[in-house]
Amino acid sequence: MPVKPEPSSALFAGPFALGTLSAPDGPAFPALVTPDGQVLDLRAAFGDERLTVRDLLERWDTALERLRALAGDGDAVRRPLAEFRVHAPVEPRQVFQSGANYRQHVIDLHVAHRAPGDERPEAERRAEAAELMDRRAAEDLPYVFIGLPSAVTGPYDDVTLPAWAEKPDWELELAAVIGRPAYRVPVEEALSYVAGYTIANDLTDRATVFRRDMPQIGTDWLRSKNAPGFTPLGPWIVPAGSLADPGDLRLVLKLNGETMQDESTKDMIFSLARMVSYASQSARLLPGDLVLTGSPAGNGMHWGRLLRDGDVMDASITGLGSQRTRCVAQDAS
């Protein structure tokens, strides 16, 4: 059975959030969840038995007004969250992932991924990475690549570590959820296309990030990041208006109770607005799509401790709640 987090006094910031839940042996449904852990089935509220969270995001401007009214309706019939299973809050059509977007994280990776034969002192390699980050920021060039929706799993589901993954690692990230089609939007308007925020853990097999057989073609994101379940997502989509500043949120990831990542989104090289705008210059972002914003320092490569069978990851971001996932080796599942 999935491992669930301990209950807290408030599940998230704001008056409500969206989730995708299911009763035992029942179909998944879109839910309005209140911070005290009460659930309203939105199928009945919107009069649509086929309704999904993505449907709501497709008409976010009008749906948001209705959701606010439902959250404040004291007569609405609600049930305890404990009665339900929590799934990933949305099924995205596209996942845009940001690489190398936290300054200290990139410097640590640059040191850890030392090229064969590079015997320079660590201080020299760190200085080289810092110079690279400064140049990227000055040239205004974020790095965005594509992930697969099939890698998304629930916030409390077990994560299977494939037998071929030699160095599976964690990467806690703030994820923006798109609320209306966005194409070639300016930075100044980018956040108006964001419906809300959620938590993502963008797992990566470090051993397969780079193609050893053909180094000239660079990174292999398909192999290293997109195994089934490698993107635990959720538990909630918290509306954008419930967070005062996405540029100042604390991300914490604990492995078996020990803190590994503890950083603020202030350390991002490129802001969330910049990432959304940049992705939209090349692709058309759709309602329900995810824009992952990169991970801060403190991954397994930094600590010299990668994921293994039985590990439990607890991840939280200010105002967005928390997720807990247990690692299960493929040959042990």
Rank of each mutant, 00 (worst) to 15 (best):
residue 66 R to F: 02
residue 222 L to D: 11
residue 216 Q to R: 10
residue 28 A to Y: 01
residue 260 M to R: 15
residue 32 L to W: 04
residue 4 K to H: 15
residue 333 S to A: 15
residue 326 R to D: 03
residue 169 D to F: 13
residue 313 M to F: 01
residue 257 G to T: 04
residue 170 W to A: 04
residue 329 A to E: 14
residue 106 V to G: 07
residue 13 A to G: 06
residue 216 Q to S: 12
residue 277 S to W: 00
residue 71 A to D: 10
residue 117 G to K: 11
residue 181 P to K: 14
residue 82 A to V: 09
residue 108 D to F: 02
residue 258 E to Y: 05
residue 123 A to K: 09
residue 86 V to H: 04
residue 326 R to A: 11
residue 229 G to M: 07
residue 71 A to W: 08
residue 74 G to D: 13
residue 15 P to Q: 14
residue 56 L to Q: 06
residue 280 S to Y: 12
residue 164 W to Q: 13
residue 328 V to Y: 07
residue 217 I to H: 12
residue 328 V to K: 10
residue 266 K to S: 13
residue 38 Q to R: 15
residue 101 N to F: 02
residue 2 P to K: 06
residue 164 W to T: 12
residue 229 G to C: 04
residue 52 T to M: 01
residue 297 A to R: 15
residue 296 P to M: 04
residue 172 L to G: 11
residue 145 F to T: 14
residue 288 G to H: 12
residue 324 R to N: 08
residue 323 Q to R: 00
residue 224 S to Q: 07
residue 317 I to K: 00
residue 213 D to N: 11
residue 128 E to I: 09
residue 309 D to P: 07
residue 77 V to A: 15
residue 164 W to L: 13
residue 170 W to E: 01
residue 233 L to S: 03
residue 126 R to W: 03
residue 208 T to Q: 12
residue 303 W to S: 12
residue 155 P to W: 00
residue 298 G to Q: 00
residue 121 P to Y: 08
residue 92 P to S: 09
residue 15 P to A: 15
residue 216 Q to F: 13
residue 3 V to Y: 12
residue 51 L to N: 01
residue 18 L to E: 05
residue 321 G to Q: 05
residue 152 V to F: 02
residue 304 G to A: 02
residue 134 D to A: 15
residue 97 Q to H: 12
residue 201 N to Y: 00
residue 317 I to S: 03
residue 147 G to R: 14
residue 135 R to Q: 14
residue 130 A to G: 08
residue 41 D to T: 07
residue 164 W to R: 14
residue 294 G to E: 07
residue 282 S to V: 11
residue 127 A to N: 06
residue 138 A to L: 14
residue 223 R to Q: 14
residue 243 L to F: 03
residue 88 A to C: 02
residue 39 V to L: 05
residue 89 P to W: 00
residue 292 L to D: 06
residue 321 G to A: 04
residue 29 F to P: 02
residue 283 A to G: 05
